[in-house]
Each structure stands twice: as structure tokens, then as C-alpha cells.
Design a binder for these strands. Structure first.
Lengths: 101, 101
DNA sequence: CTATAATATCAATATATATTGATTAAGTTT
DNA sequence: AAACTTAATCAATATATATTGATATTATAG
């Protein structure tokens, strides 16, 4: 008998889960999410906390933003990033549901 | 102020989390875990369900096994793989705890 | 012992992703 | 306007990982 996860209905879920997982399975990106838990931060704060170059930090921020895990707001010269709790919660929930299935 | 996740105490947790995440962020590996939820399966069953080549399936099984997420038992010609529920639970728990932090 | 089946391993290649360095863009300050 | 600051982008490279094809290993059957 074909397991649930191999059925067409589940394929989409698996794909979504792995996309999310790939994004948060990078150490610096996971740290960024963690850092933003403490409140919004501008890029220069983030890359200094991560001890990472500015451009690389921007790159990781873009990946997170493209997946709607964070959002940004420009204030003068600085760009502040904010954690998108809803999106994060949504994905972690569906992931844990999936892992407990 | 330095966020928790940037402190030395948390670094190990982040590393462990990302290691686990990298392993399960591959579609076929995630499917394997899912398939084994239904009960132990031999390799030939698994690669046929995944619609994947035998050697590639063996490779993914090895990755999962090296991380103790599954275990194997030889029976005649066949090798049966079994989900290691405890390890999986342990990692998912510490992950969700981390994401909710 | 030979042939066959199931699985693992290995080397080569392909692909995806992270990293670096240089440049650009936008906003500020003087 | 010129100089400076912050962040984003782009091309080039490095690195990690998945995939493929061929071969080795182990057990079974004839």
C-alpha cells in the first residue's frame, strides 16, 4: 500500500516543507530570525552581531524576505528588518504537524 | 545588547539545529522518514515508492542513518530500515523549542 | 561452484548555494 | 555639489550536496 506521503495530495506539503527547511537550515539565517525575536534591527546591527560581511548579510536577508519570513522598512539611511511572526508560526506549525503525522 | 542566540551558550544549539534541518530539508529524505512511519521497509520497497534509483536511495538512507534518524537490520538479502522515533522526537522538540524562543 | 538478487560504495559529474570583491543606488551631511 | 554612510546588486568563485554510472559486497538459489 502506498504511504500517505507518496500520494499526490501530500506532495505539495512535502515540497513546501522542504522549501521552508532549506531556508532556515542555514546557520546565519536561523540566527537572523533569532536576533529579530528581540526586536527590529537595521542591517548594520545584524551583520555586526553575526560577524558577517555586509553584502552577505544582505543576501541572507533577501532570502528570508523573499519567503516572507521577515519584512523591511527604510528609515533614513538605514533599513530595518522585522520578524514576520505569522509566517514563521504558520510554517513551523505545518512542519511539526507533518513530522508528528 | 547581544541577543541570546549570539551568545556562546546558544551557538551549539544553533549548529545542532541547522545540522538536523539540513538533513531533513531534502525532499526524498523527508519522504523516507514519512514512509517509515507506516512501518519498517526494505530498500527495494523504498526506492520504488520514491521512484528513485537504488544507489541514490542508499545514499540518502546512509545520511539519515549516520544521524541516527533511522536504523537498519539485515534479513537475508534484504536490509530493512526502521524509523528511530526517539531521535526524531528529540530533534523536532528542541527545534520547535528553539523556534518559539 | 555459478548465477542471481539486493544493497552498498566509489569516482565522476552536475547542480545548488554560500561567499567574496567590486560596484551601484539612495539618503545624509557639510 | 562633494563627501560620506548604509544597503543592495552583480559577476566570479568556492564549496557543499545531489545525481549518475560502474563496480563491489553479501546472501541466496540452483
Amino acid at each position: 500500500m502506498e504511504p500517505n506521503c507518496c500520494k499526490n495530495k501530500s506532495k505539495k506539503n512535502i515540497k513546501q516543507a522542504t522549501e521552508f527547511l532549506k531556508i532556515i537550515s542555514e546557520e546565519n539565517r536561523l540566527k537572523i530570525l533569532c536576533i529579530l525575536r528581540d526586536g527590529d534591527k537595521c542591517v548594520c546591527e545584524i551583520w555586526q552581531l553575526l560577524n558577517l560581511s555586509q553584502n552577505l548579510t544582505s543576501h541572507h536577508l533577501k532570502v528570508l524576505k523573499d519567503f516572507s519570513l521577515i519584512s523591511s522598512k527604510k528609515e533614513g539611511l538605514k533599513v530595518f528588518y522585522k520578524l514576520n511572526n505569522e509566517t514563521l508560526a504558520k510554517h513551523t506549525e505545518s512542519l511539526t504537524k507533518f513530522l508528528k503525522l
